[in-house]
Design a protein around this nucleic acid. Sequence first.
DNA 1: AGGTATGATTGGAACGTTCCAATAGGAACA
DNA 2: TGTTCCTATTGGAACGTTCCAATCATACCT
Lengths: 352, 352
Amino acid sequence: MAIPEDDVKTSGRHRKPTIFDVARLAGVSKSLVSMVIRGDERVSPARRDAVLQAINDLNYRPNAMARGLVQRRTRIVGVVVSDLRNPFNEDVASGVLTQAAELGYKGLINTSDRQREREEDAIESFLELRVDGLILATSRIDDRTIGRASRAVPVVVLGRPTSDVSTDSLTNDNEMGAAIAVEHCVSLGHRSIAHVAGGDSTAARSRRTGYERAMERFGLAERSTVVDGGFTEAEGYRGGRELLTRRSLPTAVFAANDLCAIGVLNALEEAGLSIPRDISLIGYDNTSLAALRHVSLTSIHQPGEDMGRKAMDLLFERIHEGRTEARHYVIAPSLVVRSTTAAPPREAGSEG
Amino acid sequence: MAIPEDDVKTSGRHRKPTIFDVARLAGVSKSLVSMVIRGDERVSPARRDAVLQAINDLNYRPNAMARGLVQRRTRIVGVVVSDLRNPFNEDVASGVLTQAAELGYKGLINTSDRQREREEDAIESFLELRVDGLILATSRIDDRTIGRASRAVPVVVLGRPTSDVSTDSLTNDNEMGAAIAVEHCVSLGHRSIAHVAGGDSTAARSRRTGYERAMERFGLAERSTVVDGGFTEAEGYRGGRELLTRRSLPTAVFAANDLCAIGVLNALEEAGLSIPRDISLIGYDNTSLAALRHVSLTSIHQPGEDMGRKAMDLLFERIHEGRTEARHYVIAPSLVVRSTTAAPPREAGSEG
DNA sequence: AGGTATGATTGGAACGTTCCAATAGGAACA
DNA sequence: TGTTCCTATTGGAACGTTCCAATCATACCT
């Protein structure tokens, strides 16, 4: 934790060239150099060449901070993700970055490794950097923090609704997704369907609620079984183990997300169960992980990359079109059937 | 591709408070506010409280650009990764960010989605931002670009050696790792060992060389089989398919990395082969993917997170301790045996 | 009471750009 | 040859901080 104060050694590394150095070498004024850099049309070809030559000779690079300071804008959007190890977040980040590039922005990513405090740090750093917009693909943050950020810069929250009046949000309908999952199992003949929950994030809670309501709707309320899990493989594994200690095993398991489902899968296979012959398994997010042929996990699809792109568009609208009222998009999730769901085994299926 | 020039609407969003606003509200000078922000000890408690109160009331946040401009330092390190979807890169990024936080720095991530041009853009943006250091966990970049960056700021290259005299590098011994993989197969009794190569990145080439040399060393040179693959699952899958078209199948496959191995796994399983009964499979990087119990891929371990941390340390040494001579660390990879390697099937094993 | 040491506070310069109003240098015209 | 009108070029102010030297206040000592 030693944070040295001021012992930076600049020795050896020469001062970086500035616009003045370029101007001197090219024999023009700093203003003209600035014009060349910004691609102003009305610079004579001769001077332009001289300037470009000087820029090249000096390995000059404009200082984004100085520029940002006077322009009061950075053309940077910050992306905060809670967990880089969740492939869904990568899809989102990738979508944001692609669209940002398309719109003349740069996207920078910061992550918090699922720690609340580092998440707020990440947001704070971006705000101090004066990013033009902020995309939060993170579950841990509370509304107060979001609101605070939102007072400073356009903010889009991904994956959870927000009550903040000046913040856009982009979510999938988690309750609906959970209902689709349950429905799929029911349609295959399952009646004993368990849920490995995702913890206390908003998304996880909605999925749980969706599961419970759907079970109720199908008259299976008293068959509902929820065990604690989480959004990581390890937590899913624990949830799966927990499930195995129960008196009677379910014939299908709906896991909070794909990572969690993989964990459950491990636990079940370890116990000698075969998926989907003995137990069906369904995840959420339809990440690249679920799509791995070797895993081939039935999952609820959420278009992460598209959502990332859309989030960037929403920021753009606020920045360039001056939109001020909040938008809240809810995307309908869909079912992707792969190899981990099937009809329940005979004896179990007819039992209920 | 429409990049609007200047139609930014600031309407509605008020000008952000500056240090002067805080000073006015607190009834002190800007300098005193600055001192409070930087935690200077010799501010009287009364004034400090007044300043903190004003900061809070105004939702003031120091402008990192203005600060960076005068301090000529940002306390930011840039991390460029070629592919966020490769879990190995996440480990690296995570390691860098953790250690950066520890040392009082912030790490920001940019990615290029495996496109050469966007990779150079990412580097260029970071340099314009005047990051204090740059960590390149990317394969595509050429030495010229690295050298250029290195002239401006300390650079650590990860995962490949570099000839640039002023750039540190941190790699694992890919040739050795490949040799370990081959050795492992040989020790299990395999003689017909194929390699699904990783393309033209430096790391991939070294692994291939390592494979070829090892095969030679074991007197299996004429049994060498290399098919084209890549560092992604899709390319691995193609490599696996390609392998299947060959006259005789190998009894073991060494894939360029874990992602590639998963692709190969898919292709082989799809063809009705059982791993490791019919064919053994070994990957590289020992990512979280390989560790998934359901996958349980034998792999060559490379400590991504540690390497990320070490990379950050190397930057720190240059920034704070003025080190100028280049360091090149080579880490010894190790074998992690899981469930995808076993003795070859009888008939094949005895055939050679 | 006067001098001095100590500590808190302040104003100004600098960081490296962009933006804008002002200027210079022609060309075109009378 | 002088006036007008362009167009290319320039200098100065501003952006929001930090740093430093200078100032102010207070207490202490003789």
